[in-house]
Design a protein around this nucleic acid. Structure first.
Lengths: 188, 188, 188, 188
DNA sequence: AAATAATCGAGACGGTACGTCCTGTCTTTGG
DNA sequence: CCAAAGACAGGACGTACCGTCTCGATTATTT
């Protein structure tokens, strides 16, 4: 029954999009009824697609993860020097930025959201940093995980700044990459 | 009636502390009844101190702001060279870290929480960065606000990393300051 | 949607009955939660049927009025001599007695409870007394309204006495009618 | 310390009066705070005089009982023929009528209100009816208790009618006594 | 007249009922 | 046969009241 499943998936995606738009506006508020109405469906139908409010949130996160995973995949991090790879990665993240930010603001762990999150997101990035460490281009004492946390914080900070002031995407990318690279680079 | 007010303030502080401890454990869950019980008071009394759940959350944020403001005040940022001042600032923030992190995770805006938040927190830090810019020790094209966002992201990222892995305070401080300074420094 | 409304009405009637039984036992006490539990439903559902405690009370009164109105209608007061009509009326009231008593004990005005209370209850009885006056079978100086008050008091008194001591229905009816019609003096 | 007790009793009486007036207006509503304010005292003081809302209600009933007992005592029921005694009794009750009515409307049993209620109120009246029975002036089959219930209902009914329409006291007394004694039929 | 005791108000506190709102699970109806 | 509509139980929220309590302040009483 591939046709029914396809329809179901399309509806689910529609709900997720509509919910994302609503939550971006209203924040954590917004009842399930509101979400259903915003999606143009009944509350019961919403529950038929997502058993929980939590599950809906996770589905939203999962959508972000997937979108981001595609972008990262296209960035082809492995086949570019570290600097270029980092620039591409940053550009990919910023492009999916708003959703990424909205999700990370709420308590939803992106990592738990999607079964492949680890494989599709964490692994490539960690691999990138691991490679840079192996190449000796980074300062000592910085583990891959710590690097990821710092980098993630930097991106998030820039995104926060970008949402207030109007910053062009390329401007943000350049700033992040420059600051991070000079900050962690071996020779200083 | 300074004595009555003093008692009231002390009780309110006790409630805020107890609630902070509980929420740190249970996350956003935990009903007002739970919070009251954890504080050893009745639900009605809790509502006599804080009209709303929101008001309680704001009070918690306000407490964090105040605590952090004291730490920053003691850091005496103006009378130290930039590097040293930044180290002190980072140490102050990390010291108040857990609460700062817990609050920032929830939707409570720290800035809106306390009337003096801007004066006591934002201004000194912005001043520090402004001074560094004036001294010419930072790279061009980095506004004070952008610097604050990047720095804040870096701190938050390090705090997130520190809560998972066990990182010593000084270790975290050193990492943050080093990465940030090399990242933004002029000559790079 | 006549079926849904019918179900709703049936449920409402069930709640009213169950509440009447409970209040007859527990008096004015008994929380809405208790009433809901006694009716075998949740508190929220109870509030979906009756917005207020007051509205529930009014519904109980209204039910009494309706029941009594039916009984009085069946008594066919107009087509019987005064003595017989009064006997039938008294029997009708006593039959609905317990509820009538319980409601009249609380502050709920029976008259305000039901839109047709006046037409269905007051009018027929007043008509009966008016007819008796017109027939000249009653002493002078007794207005229909005063007669109704006295009769009502007598019935209520007898009901009160009947609930304590065990008096058969027919015994009570006979006593009320006899006393009201002939007076207490032996030959008067 | 008879002086202190006297003052206390006077204050208590004042509270009871004020509360009676307030409750007559507002019905069962009216919080303890309202009652205290109406009496011109603080809530704590009110509770110092009456531990419960119930106790206050009972005190109000008790005051009525006492007042009525005095009136009945002065009526000297034993030293008058039945007709005259009943007239005096009715006059006494009607005189204290409003309070008697207000109390009997609420759930407060007058009998339980005052320790001497039975002795001061019930006994004399029952004695009156018992005497009438013994004299053979009443119809058979009417126990003293039933007579009291019927008489009480009649009085209450007349009081209810009197509060709506404007009926003079003597008019009401005459009607009650006449109806009760002679019945409503023209010549019976 | 000064010290002491009783009484007052003011109001905080624990507890509980109320009425509202939302969640997650159902049944019932219609396309 | 699945959608939309909506009823239901449960529970949290914020409000209001009750009965208990402690605290100063204002009285009366006592020495």
């Amino acid at each position: 029954m591939s046709k029914g499943e396809a329809l179901r998936d399309r509806t689910a995606a529609l709900i997720v999009d509509s919910a994302a738009a609503l939550l971006a506006r209203s924040g954590e508020t917004a009842s399930m009824e509101d979400i259903a109405t915003a999606a143009g469906i009944g509350r019961a139908t919403l529950y038929r697609y997502f058993a929980n409010r939590d599950e809906l949130l996770r589905a939203m996160a999962s959508a972000s993860v997937e979108e981001l995973a595609v972008q990262i995949g296209e960035a082809d991090l492995d086949n570019a020097p570290f600097d270029e790879a980092l620039t591409r990665l940053t550009r990919a993240i910023i492009a999916t930025g708003s959703k990424y930010l909205a999700l990370s603001r709420d308590g939803v762990g992106l990592t738990n959201a999607h079964p492949d999150a680890d494989k599709a997101l964490i692994q490539p990035v960690r691999g990138l940093f691991r490679r840079a460490i192996a190449e000796g281009s980074l300062r000592d004492g910085l583990s891959p995980d710590l690097l990821m946390s710092l980098y993630s914080g930097l991106v998030r900070g820039a995104l926060g700044a970008g949402s207030d002031r109007r910053l062009g995407v390329e401007e943000m990318v350049a700033t992040i990459v420059t600051v991070f690279l000079h900050g962690v680079r071996a020779k200083g």
